[in-house]
Write a protein that binds this DNA or RNA. Structure first.
Length: 112
DNA sequence: TTTCTAACA
DNA sequence: TGTTAGTA
């Protein structure tokens, strides 16, 4: 299987490996999950499986923590970002490439 | 591996 | 408040 065939949304890493890759402790990863910042996949046995998307999310959490936000604030940020991505994806389906290039909200208004 | 608890800064 | 360590 080629690297390009790997689904970034599919969980493959155990918690120890995932924590190692992002420079965090497994305990912190569990705390983030309990606070609703993350929801990694589970094996049949119930152990966590972190995907590449999860790792990117963890690095985002680390960045926001360093920026001074607490976990509650980060949960809110990630929630809004997720919704924003969902809305943009829906917009992409409705509009053609030309419309998607400039947001209706930011497109300059004609002010005679 | 999980969850819980306590101590630290 | 978030991290770390110890426990079961």
């Amino acid at each position: 299987m080629r690297p390009s065939d790997v689904d970034p949304a599919q969980g493959v890493f155990g918690i120890s490996v995932a924590a190692d890759l992002v420079g965090m402790d497994p305990q912190s990863l569990r705390l983030y999950e309990r606070r609703g910042l993350l929801e990694p996949a589970r094996t049949d046995g119930g152990t966590r499986r972190y995907s590449s998307d999860d790792l990117a999310r963890l690095q985002r959490i680390g960045y926001l923590l360093a920026a001074g936000l607490n976990l509650a604030g980060i949960a809110k940020v990630l929630e809004l970002e997720t919704e924003n991505a969902r809305l943009r994806a829906a917009l992409e389906l409705t509009h053609d490439a030309d419309m998607a290039r400039t947001s209706p909200l930011t497109r300059p208004r004609s002010v005679d």
